[in-house]
Amino acid sequence: MIKMVLKRLGQTILSLVVVATIIFFMFRLMPGDPTAAVVDPSISTEAREAMIQRLGLDQPLYQQYFSFLSDAVRGDLGRSFYYRRPVMEVIGDKVINTLMLMLSAMLIAYVIGILVGAYLAWKRGSKKEATLISIALTFRSAPTFWVGMLFIMFFSFRLGWFPHSGMRSSGYEAANTFEVFFSLDFLRHLFLPAVVAGLYFLATPLLMMRNTMLEVLGEDFIEMCHAKGLKEKVILYRHAARNALLPVVTTGALFLGQAIGGQVLIEYVFGWPGLGTEIIQAAQRHDYPLAQASFLLIALMVMIMNFLADLLYSYLDPRITYK
C-alpha cells in the first residue's frame, strides 16, 4: 500500500512537471502582447519598455522557463502581471466561491443522479424511464446560460423567489466567516446557480449509474437476493447500487478535480464572483503567471482526486487491493 502511494506520488510529480512545461510554452506561443492589458495603449514607449523589463519578459525564454520552474518548486507561483499581486492571493479570493457553487451543484447532480439512475435501471423500458432520461439529456444539451436566463426570468423576475445576481445581498453584514457562507441570504443566492449547474451535470451520473446498474442487476447474486426474499428497495439500494457505484465514483472524483475551474457561463449569467471568469481573463490578458498557476492547480486537483478515487475503490469493492 505505502509503496503504491509512493509510486503514484512520483508519477504525479512527473506529470506536474510535464503539465507545467506545456502550460508555460502554450501561453507564450499565443499571439498578442502581454503588456497590452497591463499598460494602456496610450502610454509612452519608455514606460512600456520599463514594464516589460520589470515583468521579466525581456529575458530569453529558457531563462524565464527555468526561473518559473524553480520558483514553482519553492511554492512561489509569482505575481500576476495584471493585478501585481501574488497569484495565490488572486486565486484564493475567488476559489472558495467557485468551490461553494460547484460542490453544491455536484451534490445535487450526484445524489439525484445516483438515486434516480438506480431507480431507472429497475424501471427499464417504462415510460417513466424515457421521460426522466429525456429531461436529464435536455438539461445536458441546452446551453447553461440559456437555462440560467430562463430560470432567472421565471424565478427571479416573474415570481421574485430568488435573487438574480451575486452571492449575497448588497451591503450585508456578517459577524464571522461562517455567517458569510452559511446564512439564509447566501443560500438563497446559491440556489438558482447551483440548481442550473446541477441539472447540467445530472446526466453523467444518472446515465452511468443506470447503465452499470443494468449490468449488475443481471448478475447471479441479485437473483440470490430475490431468492432470499429481500425487499426490492433493499436489493436495489443496498446490494446492487453499491456494486454499480465504482465508475460513478471515478467520474465524481474527476469532476471534483475540475470543479476548481468553475463554470464560466453560469458564473457569468448569475454574476457569481468565481474563479472561472478570472482564469479566462488571465488567458485573454496574457497574464502568464495567473493563467499558469490556475491551470497547474486544476491539473494538480485532477491528479489528487484520481488518486483518491483509486483508494476509495478498495473500500467500495474489497476485492480490489493495491500491491
Binding site: I152, S156, S165, S170, Y268, V269, F270, G271, W272
Partner: peptide
C-alpha cells in the same frame, strides 16, 4: 456609497428595474 458588481448588462438593468 455602495458599488455592487453584476455579471452583465442584463443584471444591471434588472437591478435598476427592481429598485435594488
Amino acid at each position: 456609497l455602495l458599488q455592487v458588481l453584476y455579471g452583465h448588462a442584463e443584471g444591471v438593468l434588472g437591478a435598476l428595474e427592481q429598485g435594488d
